[in-house]
Structure formats: structure tokens, C-alpha cells
């Protein structure tokens, strides 16, 4: 059944009927599997992958390396939670290596993003240090290339 997850991860707009045909299962099975995945929060959500650069919306993304002190008894999870609850935070990962958390935030302007770090993130008690990197351009995200798809300009051939 994990095949269904693989298909939806690539394109969540396929209907259960279509997925059933693709995988050779019956529709009820597929509906049921998806329902279970949603219930168990294995499917966490469905979103569109937007290339905001092509719109008028002003926004910047910043990737922040954060060093923290883990809380007694709760490790990193509690610290992470305090951070990821800010709506500005789009993603938050616990890392191995020379820092602890990757925090990806979105703001309207660089200034707004920087202010978030200065006023909200850095002052947190368990945050030891931050290092902010601004994203200049997205080439690829969630497996999808952001450049316009090349036109199929293959020449006709007789085979």
C-alpha cells in the first residue's frame, strides 16, 4: 500500500479511482488506505508547490542554523516546539553536526525576517546562537525543478 503514498507524494490530485487503476487495486481499498493514512497523520497534508517568484507577492526565505541547549527531560523537542509554533516558521528540522536546528522562515522582506530572528528567535532562553542565510533562488524543491519545463521539441522520427 505504500505505493499509494509514493503516487500521492508526486501528485496529490490523482483521484482514488485513478490510483486504483494505476496500481491494479480496487477503489474501496484505495479510499480506505488513504483514509487510514490521514487518520494516522501519515499523510500530514496536501499542498500546492508554488513558485512565488513568478507572482507579485514579495517574500523572502531564510534558513537559520540554530544552536540550542536541550531542556532537561525533554531534549530538543520542547525547544523545537517553542520555535516552530511561530507562524513565520515554515519548516524546522533537528540536525546532526555542528548545529542543532534548521529553521526555515518566510518574511515579506529581509528586514522582516532579520527582525524575527533578532526579536523572537535569538532571545529565547535555550537558543545559544543563530546564523541566518537568505535564500536567493529556488532551483528545486520537493523533487520538482522550478525552471520552466523545457518544451518537447523532439523531431518527428519514424519508428
Amino acid at each position: 500500500m505504500e505505493e499509494i503514498l509514493g503516487i500521492l507524494e508526486k501528485n496529490c490530485r490523482y483521484t482514488a479511482e485513478q490510483i486504483a487503476v494505476m496500481t491494479g487495486k480496487n477503489v474501496e481499498e484505495v479510499h480506505e488506505a488513504i483514509r487510514k493514512y490521514e487518520e494516522k497523520n501519515i499523510i500530514v497534508g496536501y499542498t500546492a508547490l508554488v513558485n512565488w517568484e513568478k507572482t507579485c507577492k514579495e517574500s523572502v526565505l531564510a534558513l537559520i542554523e540554530v544552536k540550542v541547549t536541550p531542556q532537561r527531560g525533554e531534549g530538543f523537542d520542547k525547544v523545537a516546539e517553542r520555535i516552530y509554533k511561530f507562524p513565520e516558521v515554515k519548516a524546522c528540522y533537528l540536525m546532526s553536526g555542528s548545529f542543532d536546528l534548521t529553521v526555515i522562515i518566510e518574511g515579506k522582506t529581509m528586514k522582516e525576517a532579520a527582525l524575527f530572528v533578532a526579536e523572537k528567535l535569538a532571545p529565547l532562553e535555550s537558543v545559544l546562537s543563530t546564523s541566518t542565510h537568505f535564500v536567493l533562488k529556488k532551483y528545486k524543491d520537493k523533487g520538482a525543478v522550478f525552471a520552466d519545463k523545457p518544451r518537447d521539441d523532439r523531431e518527428a522520427i519514424f519508428i
Partner: peptide, 9 residues
């Protein structure tokens, strides 16, 4: 294989 099934169906 997925495409094949969709097409034949």
C-alpha cells in the same frame, strides 16, 4: 506500468 494500466482501462 501505472500508465499502462490507466491507458488500457
Amino acid at each position: 506500468n501505472r500508465r499502462r494500466r490507466v491507458l488500457v482501462d
